[in-house]
Write a protein that binds this DNA or RNA. Structure first.
Lengths: 150, 150
DNA sequence: TATTGTTATACTCTATAACTATA
DNA sequence: TATAGTTATAGAGTATAACAATA
């Protein structure tokens, strides 16, 4: 039993998926936060704006399902985006309980810029991976979460 | 512009590393929490115990660096593990400011069981991936976080 | 009776400043 | 002067219960 630890043995942790996934996520999110600071967008806000841009009229419930958010936690986020004139709430066409979410006029420009910046952020983190490796990585991540766990 | 969204278009998000990494992490951590409930160990507690087991005498500062924790947030976690008789704090051999962390007597048995269970948990999440795919996934995740971002 | 959105609230996780004792 | 550990505290993220309006 060594009295003083100099080199840390992480061999057990390093073979576990969760440990590696968490450390990779920290690296990706850290770079994302840095690159998105100019737009003042956190990852969830970026995802919400992107889904609204690609799916005009989407409801809060659909956003919650897609992004694994709980409805009470989405309310304040949407309020903030409305206050920043990035989105607007409109009456839903067929369900008067729901609200249809749309980008505010002019917000599509900012969203496009942010999306381009997000791709650049990925580029930084994945810069030392080949194109094939990147595709493989994303495909394998999808395979992890896109399958019913039964 | 569709009035009602039925099928959600996630094509933009799905090409981004952060989105896929987050969803994969949620799946992995969810399974981990379920499988570790019997031991009442959260992911961070499991990692701390594993590092102490593999590195007897490791200091709190070394744990913080390895697991990306902030010192104030580790204190309570270690206190709880001491109270549960899983670890003990001992004087450091060469630095009287530091404390050397060790597993408590008998805790190695629980840690080994938990590590075995963690591997089983990975097995569930990765069950539909081939052995080669799993190795590739972990290797690529390491490549993402183990490289200087410059 | 079930669902959408909302309020209020609590619990966990993460972050910062400041202190002590040692180096 | 710098570092290891600690305290107190604040903020962000995530969770449940309950309500009004609508299906």
């Amino acid at each position: 039993m060594p009295e003083v630890v100099d080199q840390i043995d992480t061999s057990v942790l390093e073979q576990l998926l969760g440990y590696n996934a968490r450390r990779a996520s920290l690296a990706v999110i850290g770079q994302f936060l840095e690159d998105m600071a100019e737009f003042n967008l956190r990852p969830v806000e970026f995802s919400v704006l992107t889904l609204i841009a690609s799916n005009p009229g989407i409801t809060a419930r659909q956003l919650c399902q897609q992004l694994a958010l709980l409805p009470p936690n989405l309310v304040g986020l949407l309020n903030a985006l409305v206050k920043r004139d990035l989105i607007r709430r409109e009456p839903h066409a067929s369900d008067r309980r729901a609200t249809a979410l749309h980008l505010a006029c002019g917000a599509d420009k900012l969203v496009k810029k942010a999306q381009s910046r997000a791709l650049q952020s990925d580029e930084k983190v994945l810069g030392h991976l080949t194109a094939a490796e990147r595709q493989t990585l994303i495909a394998l991540l999808k395979k992890v979460y896109a399958t019913p766990q039964l």
